[in-house]
Design a protein around this nucleic acid. Sequence first.
DNA 1: CACCATGTTCCTTG
DNA 2: CCAAGGAACATGGT
Length: 284
Amino acid sequence: MPELPEVEVLVRHMDPLVRGQEIQAVTVRREKSIRPGSRAAFVRNLRGAMLHGVRRRAKYLVFDWQPRNKDFRRRMLGHLGMTGRMYLLPGGSALPRHAAVVIQFQATQFVFEDPRYFGRLSLDLSPLEKLGPEPLSADFGVEDFARVCRRSMRPIKNLLLDQTVVAGLGNIYAGEALFRSGLSPRLPAARIGGRRLRRLHAAIVAVLEEAIELGSTMVLDWSGKDSGNRLFYYGEPRGAESAVAERFHVYGRAGQPCRVCGTPIHRIVQSGRSSFYCRTCQRA
DNA sequence: CACCATGTTCCTTG
DNA sequence: CCAAGGAACATGGT
């Protein structure tokens, strides 16, 4: 489920539910999901801690708490990888097969489930240091963004996936932002002029904001059972069926007509990943 | 059976 | 040093 908007919506749901909760017990059912780090150190640091809350940075979740011993760590990083989910279940509920880590609160249990094990939890916060600006904050300035683009010959799609350039875009929203700004994903970044770069910058912000807005209108399937709309674990939309169905303009739509001009959406592979775009609306 | 998949990191090659 | 490609991680959907 993980690009910036999905993590943001998850955090907004989860923060009020974990804030003020005391960690009674921690079960690491899959040690590889604590990475880097060991099960023993992880459990020792979390047990007895009082959660302050959870927030988002790029695609990461940052949990912070008051540890039971002042020498213990007070923050944890979470990443959902490709298929990770985090949710709360009533205490004592049956766990899904791929529940990797379970944290017990008073009446509920936090579950980190991840079939593919690309996601992780860790007490090591250092990955945050390498991240570029948050796209929805004032740190994401159009001038800085333009400067980075102008000195790179990499295809713009690849640049948008680079978390040091802007933090939080993934394959879906990078492609959607390029569609919205009318740019081919193959364009060498340095060949995009100031005007088009400004349009791209604005498209990145708009695409992310709209996705968060859409996600916020849905009811989370808090049980974690629903595979939801196949990409994320949102449950049913509240009176916004069509918005969900038409959520993407290009992602996953190879062969289907462009919503603007009707040209079949084209699929190419860049750096081993699919890029979808309209060859009429998105020019080189 | 085949192919594809929202992410990151590491390694090799140019 | 930079950029690109492939592999690895391991499973599930179509």
